[in-house]
Design a protein around this nucleic acid. Structure first.
Lengths: 248, 248
DNA sequence: AATTTAATTGCAAAAACACGCAAAAACACG
DNA sequence: CGTGTTTTTGCGTGTTTTTGCAATTAAATT
């Protein structure tokens, strides 16, 4: 392998994961540590990355990691970590869009091997960073508000899918009313997603609890898992615990 | 073996594998290292490949390196500005992916009113920022390399579309060979895109000129517009001017 | 503070490279 | 056809680049 190719490989890794470990590169490229160190040093000289003890970081790392713009990011990370346990190798997973799902995808373990269907372009792009993940983007009209595809075509395609697990964000959840939404199209979409998955996990930051909106998606019983950032025994969840669903 | 034959052989190897080792060529062509080096140097002078220690790399293999400062961004903006003139209100436009197209979308005038079909999630997200634009994302398998959807499903959907204009980036263009590509799937995809648009504009930074890769997409005559960052009368375009296509 | 882990430095061998030179082949032209 | 010129090619020599190893230093971990 030519040096230039190694450099390209390293830069691809960096741009993909924002970071890279010297030891990983040694294995992946089967060269000595010294060579990798020299490569990294040369890339630093070319101003293409930061070097740190143990590896290197992307130059855009600081800007991309510090997206404190994402509302309640910490909570979403907690939720993501819980949800990841539901995903097993070989599964077919269907996901919606939204920042919570996106956070989940970013937290996935490197080696994960699964098939993902998604209606969110951003989720698709993020999923594509995992080598052993097959990504199928469900196409259709693209919604400017929710940044997902929707409409008849999407629903038609969903009807042909059989997924093991559906992960969806939520606008509102209520112990009696179940899942609800404001927009007709999104409502239809969620129904279709529920219909094609064996199990559904709803990712929900606590402040969306106990809210009921105009349109009903499904009763609580249709959901398999409710995942919040709260402790399982938290008071706020008591009315949900009485229902037929797992709380994580 | 004649020198020209050796050169052709080397270029075939390069276009096939994106790279070539000096030592391999010495063996394959049974000539001395010096001859190979001279050959490579001449091909570099003719602007047909990159030379690196140990061998040479394809020019088109300009890997998605430094994506913080998108490669040749200035050129791409010039191209974008030219291409935008082709888009009229009310049109149905089909776009591919790639950084050039993405730059074009970012340069669109705010008030633009049109319908866009696209196979690129990133383009879709960017297009969604324009209020009067309807965005339809064509779904299917998502390619980790080229960041577009591809495969049978995409082609099937494309066959149902009738677009006024197709905007596509390019890996390589050649006055005799026309548009060419390295990957089968992408090749099929581009063919399908061409087939469903009345006119096609190819966006191409000048360094991709005069390169022919393994798989043929279409002859030059199938393209309506060739858009580069160069002046229309630039010498480098002379061989394209002779053909049946508009150069912008 | 002790131990493990990663970085740095200098060194040496191998590989790749550049340059000049000369033999051979191809070419030009009266 | 003969002679002079250019092109092409391989070889020898010296230089540079690349790479791994060993010894030392620095950083993190406990």
């Amino acid at each position: 392998m030519l040096k230039k190719e190694r450099h390209d490989f390293i830069m691809r890794q960096i741009n993909l994961h924002n970071r890279v470990l010297t030891s990983d590169l040694v294995q992946l490229l089967t060269v000595s540590e010294d060579t990798i160190r020299r490569d990294l040093q040369e890339l630093v000289d070319a101003n293409l990355l930061y070097k740190v003890h143990g590896g290197a970081l992307s130059k855009s790392y600081h800007s991309s990691f510090d997206d404190s713009t994402v509302y309640a990011r910490d909570s979403k990370i907690v939720i993501a970590k819980k949800a990841i346990n539901l995903i097993k190798d070989g599964m077919v997973v269907l996901t919606g869009g939204g920042t919570t799902i996106l956070e989940l995808v970013k937290q996935l373990p490197q080696g994960i091997s699964a098939t993902f269907f998604t209606i969110s372009p951003l989720v698709a792009v993020e999923l594509a960073k995992y080598n052993n993940v097959e990504v199928i983007l469900i196409g259709g009209l693209f919604s400017k508000n929710s940044q997902v595809t929707y409409g008849g075509q999407v629903i038609a395609q969903l009807s042909e899918i059989k997924a093991d697990l559906c992960l969806m964000g939520t606008s509102a959840i209520h112990p009696e009313e179940g899942l609800t939404d404001t927009y007709w199209e999104i409502n239809q979409l969620k129904k279709a997603m529920l219909a094609c998955a064996k199990r559904t996990a709803v990712l929900c930051i606590s402040e969306k609890l106990d809210i009921a909106l105009r349109l009903r998606v499904c009763p609580l019983e249709s959901i398999s898992y409710l995942i919040t950032e709260l402790d399982i025994n938290d008071e706020a969840l008591s009315r949900y615990r009485e229902k037929e669903l797992n709380i994580l």
